[in-house]
Simulated scan of single mutants.
Amino acid sequence: MSLYLDHAATTPVRREVLEAITPILTAEFGNPSSSHAAGERARDALESARRRVGRALGVRTGDVVFTSGGTEANNLAMQGIGVAAAASRGARHLVTTSIEHSSVRETARFLARVHGFEVTELSVDGHGLVAADGVARALRDDTALVAVGLANNEIGTVQPVADIAAVCRERGVPLHVDAVQAAGWLPLAGLGADSIAISGHKLGGLQGTGALAVRRRIPLEPVLHGGGQERGRRSGTENVAGAVALGVACEIAEREREEAAARVARIRDEFIAAVLSRVPGARLTGHPDRRLPSTASFVIPGVNGESVLLELERSGVLASSGSACRAGSTEPSHVLLAAGFDAQTARTAIRFSFPRGVDADLSPVARALAAAAASLAG
C-alpha cells in the first residue's frame, strides 16, 4: 500500500463530509432557486454552509461566494475587482509577486492583455519571501488591486500578509489573498484582506468546490453572467452538495487547526532533519521558519526530480515535484527560479506534503529518498 504524501495537491474526502452530503445527493436534491419545499430545503442547506465558511474565514455570511474551486475564486477576485476599478476610476495597475499560483499569474496576464492593465510583479528573496515595504513602494494612485498568496503551494513559505494588508489599507487599495494552501493550517480570520480564496479539496472537501470571501464594500464585476445567483456575483445553479461539503470541511479543519498544525510541524521538522542528514547535497527550499506546517520541499543537485519521484513510487511513497498544476511540464518551477535557483537545480525539486492526521515516524521515507537519490546520482 502506498504512503500518500502529496496532500498539497489534493486530500481525501473526510468521512463527516460524505455523511453530510449523502442526503443532498439522494433525497434532498432541490434547486435552491426554486420556490417549492424542496428548493427551500436546498436553500437552507446552502445558507447553513455559507455561515460555516464565513465563520472559518472570519467574515460575514453574506461575503461568501461559492465557486468551482480556488482557480475560479482567484479569477473572480482579480477580474471582478480589477475590472470594476478600471470602469469606475480608470485604475489599471495590479501588484502581485513572482511566485504566485498559475491561477493568479495567468489572470494577471489576462488583465494586461485584454484590459490594458500594467502588472508589477514583485521579486522575492532566496526563501520566497516578499517584503511589505516592497509592496508599499509599488503602490500607485491607479493601483486597482494587490494579489498575494498567504502560503506558497510549492515551497510552503508564509508571506507577511497582515503587514501587507496594513500597507494596502493605509493607501486604500484592495488586497486579495490566495489562501488555498493555507486554509486549515493557518488562521485566516483577522488577516485584513478584502478578499480571500479557498478550495474544498485541500481541506477534505470535494474537488471542484471553493469559495471567495469578498467584503461587500468592494465593487466586484461578475465573471459569470446569467441568473444572478450568489447575490449577483456568480451566476449559475449552486452546487449545494459541494457547498455543504466545503462548510463541513472548513468547520472541522478550523476546530482541529491549532493541534494539527503543532503536531504536524513537529513531524515535518524531524523529517527535514532526517532528509538533510541522509541525502548528500540536499537543500531545503522555502523559509526555514515561516512555512506551512505540512510542507517540506527540497532540491537535490545532480539528480532529476521526476526520476526520483518514480523511484519513490516504486518504494511505495507518493510525493511530487511541486505544483500539481504544472504536471507534465518540462519547464523548471517559476517559484524556485524566482527564489534564485538555477534552472538545472530547480528541476531536481521534490515536495512532500503531509495530512492533518499524520503521526508516524517518517524516517523510512527519508531513507527511501536517500536510496533513490543515490541510485540516480552521477
Results as ranks from 00 to 15, higher is better:
His36Met: 14
His36Pro: 11
Ala37Ser: 02
Ala37Phe: 13
Ala38Thr: 07
Ala38Asn: 13
Ala38Gly: 01
Gly39Lys: 02
Gly39Met: 00
Gly39Gln: 02
Glu40Ile: 14
Glu40Trp: 08
Glu40Asp: 11
Glu40Thr: 13
Arg41Met: 01
Arg41Gly: 05
Arg41Trp: 02
Ala42Phe: 01
Arg43Gly: 01
Arg43Met: 00
Arg43Cys: 00
Arg43Leu: 03
Asp44Lys: 15
Leu46Ile: 04
Glu47Phe: 05
Glu47Val: 05
Ser48Asn: 11
Ser48Ile: 11
Ala49His: 06
Ala49Ser: 10
Ala49Pro: 00
Arg50Asn: 10
Arg50Tyr: 02
Arg50Phe: 04
Arg50Thr: 07
Arg51Ser: 04
Arg51Lys: 07
Arg51Cys: 09
Arg52Met: 10
Arg52Asp: 04
Val53Arg: 05
Val53Ile: 01
Val53Met: 05
Arg55Ala: 00
Arg55Leu: 12
Ala56Trp: 06
Ala56Glu: 03
Ala56Pro: 10
Leu57Gly: 01
Leu57His: 01
Val59Gly: 00
Arg60His: 15
Arg60Val: 10
Arg60Asn: 11
Arg60Tyr: 14
Thr61Cys: 07
Gly62Leu: 12
Gly62Asp: 03
Asp63Thr: 08
Asp63Ala: 13
Val64Arg: 11
Val65Thr: 06
Phe66Ser: 11
Phe66His: 08
Thr67Gln: 06
Thr67Val: 14
Gly70Ser: 05
Gly70Ile: 05
Gly70Ala: 03
Thr71Gly: 09
Thr71Ala: 13
Thr71Pro: 07
Thr71Ile: 14
Glu72Thr: 12
Glu72Leu: 02
Glu72Tyr: 08
Ala73Arg: 02
Ala73Glu: 13
Ala73Lys: 02
Asn74Pro: 03
Asn75Asp: 15
Asn75Tyr: 15
Leu76His: 09
Leu76Gly: 12
Leu76Trp: 09
Ala77His: 03
Ala77Gln: 02
Ala77Trp: 11
Gln79Asp: 09
Gln79Pro: 15
Gln79His: 14
Gln79Ile: 12
Gly80Ala: 02
Gly80Lys: 00
Gly80Ile: 07
Gly80Cys: 00
Ile81Phe: 05
Ile81Gln: 01
Gly82Met: 05
Gly82Asp: 07
Ala84Arg: 01
Ala84Leu: 12
Ala85Tyr: 01
Ala85Asn: 04
Ala85Ser: 03
Ala86Trp: 12
Ala86Glu: 06
Ala86Leu: 02
Ala87Val: 07
Ala87Ile: 14
Ala87Pro: 07
Ser88Asn: 12
Ser88Gly: 11
Ser88Gln: 11
Ser88Phe: 15
Arg89Ser: 01
Arg89Gly: 07
Gly90Thr: 04
Arg92Gly: 02
Arg92Ser: 03
Arg92Phe: 06
